[in-house]
């Protein structure tokens, strides 16, 4: 009974990456808008999940602002600017974090064409 339960929990943790059980999520590369980013002269975003884990509890972002599943949340700078996602009023649209116009803090390869 007990080994079965443990393997069930392990399977659940593997199935739902990003939950409390499966901590240690490294950097996440966000490049679904890479064509548009290329036009704007910036590269993909490398999101430091570990850094945010240290600063905030999982529930601060999941699942209200970001869905746990990788790639499930539609993201764009427009949404950030409108106060959603990264640009939520308590996040990168407030004094608590660096502002959205600081492009190169998130976008790599700035200036590359």
């Amino acid at each position: 009974m007990r080994p079965g339960l443990i393997s069930f929990v392990a399977a659940l943790a593997m199935a739902l990456p990003g939950t409390g059980l499966a901590a240690a999520v490294g950097d996440i590369v966000l490049d679904s808008r890479s064509v548009s980013m290329g036009k704007a002269g910036v590269g993909p975003v490398v999101y430091p999940h570990a850094l945010h884990e240290k600063l905030y509890k999982c529930a601060a972002c999941h699942p209200k602002i970001f869905k746990e599943k990788a790639g499930a949340t539609e993201m764009s700078m427009k949404l950030n600017m409108d106060g959603k996602l990264c640009g939520s009023p308590n996040c990168h649209n407030s004094e608590k974090a660096f502002p959205l116009y600081n492009c190169v803090k998130c976008h790599t390869k700035a200036g590359a064409k």
Binding site: S36, K39, G41, S76
Partner: peptide
């Protein structure tokens, strides 16, 4: 015009 496709 904004360069990116998703920005106003």
């Amino acid at each position: 015009p904004a360069k990116g496709d998703f920005v106003d």
